[in-house]
């Protein structure tokens, strides 16, 4: 893949050999440049209005106080919004940012463990496409459906408590109890994201040569040893990819939480992106909201870089 990413230099050097002056070749090139920018115009315009402008605007807002109506009333306040987030009594660091990291970490651990297990098993079965499809269903379903079905299943008269009762256990108020609310939501997020992880890991497993397993079997290695010494190390690139993407989604996503708990009970499931959303659109504190967005951006970036670093250190490839 790396090769195709590199821009093809061959064309450039070939065209450089043309004689100077506005010959037909030069005219053709100029025409190609005009056409290229015409083809790219919608994209470039979009990036200017919906990428560059918003980034600048968000940066300006993060260092201003603004109630949200007249653009002329934006008042610069320096880094006050950022220091406010980390001030004593602010809920941003704890529980909000802690919840965010716990939510992402819990999701990654459950989804990764589950999908490694399922993917290695699927690899030995027939009808692999059918299994993958079943595990993939939540991925193509709107978060409103996923959230509401699980919310309903967690209720006292819902499926989960029905199963608990049938096993002779007492009911649990999963989403109403501050101690169980976050784990309950984490399980749903992991359930919903396992499908793509299984997909990537199955592809990774397929690329491991069968001869390695056969050699290990001839040497009399047990299943656990084979898994630890062959499967896991050779699966590292896929694992890294799954880990990073799932962490990214986990740290950013708040749609599921908005649907299931709205951050409650209390602040038990409040996460950073939801807090940013509420600061802006419920409380009208656009400055604090924008500052929170940038802090979350930095957190996401740092966690991603740390993962890359850890995976690089624990193995030469990656």
């Amino acid at each position: 893949m790396v090769n195709t990413l590199a821009p093809e230099r061959a064309g450039h050097s070939a065209s450089r050999a043309r004689p100077p002056g506005p010959g037909p070749a030069a005219r053709a090139r100029r025409r190609q440049t005009v056409v290229a920018y015409l083809f790219l115009a919608p994209v470039l315009l979009f990036f200017a209005v919906f990428l560059a402008l918003p980034l600048g605007f968000a940066l300006l807002l993060s260092m201003s106080r603004w109630s949200g109506f007249d653009l002329g009333e934006i008042r610069p306040v320096g880094p006050a919004n950022f220091t406010g987030l980390f001030a004593r009594g602010s809920t941003f660091l704890a529980p909000v940012l802690t919840n965010t990291v716990l939510f992402a970490l819990g999701t990654v651990v459950i989804a990764l463990a589950g999908s490694v297990l399922v993917a290695t098993c699927i690899d030995r079965l027939r009808f692999q496409g059918l299994w993958r499809t079943l595990y993939f269903l939540p991925m193509v379903t709107t978060v409103v459906a996923v959230g509401n079905v699980w919310k309903y299943m967690y209720e006292p008269g819902g499926l989960v408590n029905g199963v608990l009762n049938a096993l002779g256990l007492g009911s649990v108020a999963f989403l109403q109890d501050p101690h169980t609310a976050l784990p309950a939501v984490v399980v749903v997020q992991a359930w919903a994201s396992a499908g793509s992880a299984i997909l990537v890991l199955t592809a990774g497993l397929k690329s491991i040569p069968r001869s390695y397993y056969e050699a290990a079997e001839l040497d009399g290695a047990g299943a656990v040893t084979v898994f630890r010494k062959i499967t896991l190390p050779l699966l590292r690139p896929s694992l890294l990819f799954v880990c990073i993407t799932q962490f990214l989604t986990g740290l950013q996503s708040f749609a599921l939480i908005t649907v299931m708990t709205k951050g409650g009970p209390g602040d038990a499931t409040a996460v950073a992106a939801l807090e940013m959303y509420r600061q802006a659109f419920s409380y009208g504190d656009w400055g604090t909201a924008s500052a929170a967005a940038f802090v979350l951006f930095v957190v996401v970036l740092v966690i991603t870089l740390v993962q890359l670093w850890v995976f690089r250190r624990s193995g030469e490839d990656a």
Binding site: T33, L55, F254, A280, A293
Partner: peptide, 26 residues
């Protein structure tokens, strides 16, 4: 083939790095 092609291609790659929540408000 045109001037600025590599730059624009890198720009496109860079746009994928920005998390969507950064853009909700603006």
């Amino acid at each position: 083939r045109f001037r600025g092609r590599d730059f624009i291609f890198r720009l496109v790659l860079a746009t994928m790095m920005f998390p969507p929540f950064l853009f909700f408000i603006p």
